[in-house]
Write a protein that binds this DNA or RNA. Structure first.
Lengths: 242, 242
DNA sequence: GGATGGTTGCGCACACTGTGCGCGGCATGG
DNA sequence: CCATGCCGCGCACAGTGTGCGCAACCATCC
């Protein structure tokens, strides 16, 4: 146990310093995202994060007020992965909205912990990235012809759908990957039980059977696209009604 | 410190037993919901829950496998508060869907912690109440004329929207109530900062200003209703397109 | 030069968490 | 009457977020 340098003796490397970029908010946030992607939200602890950066747990508190603030930073950072396409022509609002919705969903599936965390960070966060995004996304709907007040509500509607859907998908995905089995194995295992549970209503089993052979990821993609089209149809109806 | 009865002496009430219904799964779940409603999710601990029931923390483990299972039970229990109206006429599917969406949102605002927890309990739960509900809700859309496969997807779309919207509302509500201030005070305080942040895009401030004087709860109700109508319009379009 | 003051990393400690283990009392059934 | 099961509980362990104060560094100024 004496190997811990109680005294920085002469031959102990005085630590060239700066060999590591040391700690910084950006670095901490980046490593936190890495840890979250690899191990999930409930495995993120300040101690573990510190260890991953060859640092003590409490050292992080020099750069981050507390864990909640860290999470706010992390969430805004992943929002930064999203980009809203520049509005080309007003007629293309539907393609633009589809693209934004798709990239938001993709981001939430890439970082499955985001969904579980969104409910906890209130709107108090509204980091710079999210602020920029919502502004750019608003522009899409305004260009489409929605008045500002409507554009705001329509945008929230679409985002709510995507977040709701993707959160549920991500929870499922985390459950699957944590079990070690593949998604297809999981549904194959769950399917007979579900069918049995709905034995009295044979029709309820039909959607399950219909997608029994297909790649579950494709099924999820289709379901998402179906709902997205439905919501966009609703937006279009609103737009037509002026 | 000797007051702890190391030995149950004769004059120590041998505890008439059964004076309390003691511990039971139902009782535990009910108290957990009470604690969650009062203090929020991060304040729920087995020790605190035990104390609230005049019991030790670990006593609960006789009836509940672990905290995660408790939460699954609790979530299914609050799903039990929802009721799906009996299908009257197929034409009334829209009213029926509106009613279900509204009661789901109301439940999630009554129990603001539900949203934060939904992302964590995967579909692994699917307790009896949720199973019953989705079956009954499916029936509404089938009666409306949707084929089974479409009814399933349309239902998921609607639910995703409601959950996404209500989760965000609930997070905001929890933030507000935890601060002690009223919702109106909060927005009044936040408004100038938001307007300043969007100084370069004056039109972005318009939605904020438009609702500056109104009761925030009414604004939220309106926004939810607006999005709900939009989604239902999309469903109607799908139905018309057969 | 040397002193000074601010910044950074860290060890320690505290209050708290979920939960496995085993004890001792209780109710029931033979 | 004893035996068998159940139930509540105290103890203990590993792990958490985080406040406090020390030690080492850096840049600045006398």
């Amino acid at each position: 146990m004496q190997d811990k340098q109680a005294i920085p003796s002469v031959w102990t490397r005085p630590k060239k310093k700066k060999e590591q970029p040391a700690l910084s908010v950006e670095h901490i946030v980046a490593e936190a995202i890495g840890l979250l992607d690899e191990e999930g939200i409930e495995q993120l602890s300040m101690r573990k994060l510190g260890a991953r950066m060859n640092a003590g747990a409490t050292s992080l508190y020099r750069h981050v007020a507390n864990k909640d603030e860290l999470i706010e930073l992390v969430v805004d950072e992943v929002y930064g992965e999203l980009t809203v396409p520049k509005v080309t022509t007003p007629e293309r609002w539907r393609e633009n909205a589809t693209e934004v919705a798709g990239s938001l969903r993709a981001m939430m599936l890439r970082h499955p912990w985001v969904g579980t965390v969104l409910g906890q960070v209130g709107l108090k966060s509204l980091g710079p990235n999210l602020a920029r995004l919502s502004g750019e996304f608003m522009a899409v709907f305004q260009a489409a012809g929605f008045p500002v007040l409507d554009a705001d509500k329509v945008m929230n509607t679409l985002i709510s759908y995507v977040i709701g859907m993707a959160t549920s998908e991500a929870a499922w995905l985390q459950l699957v990957t944590r079990s070690g089995k593949t998604e297809a194995e999981w549904v194959a295992e769950l399917l007979p039980r579900a069918i049995e549970a709905a034995a009295d209503r044979a029709d309820l089993a039909e959607p399950l059977l219909a997608s029994s052979g297909v790649d579950p990821a494709v099924v999820r993609d289709d379901n998402f696209a179906y709902g997205l089209e439905t919501v966009l149809d609703g937006c279009a109806a609103r737009l037509a009604r002026l």
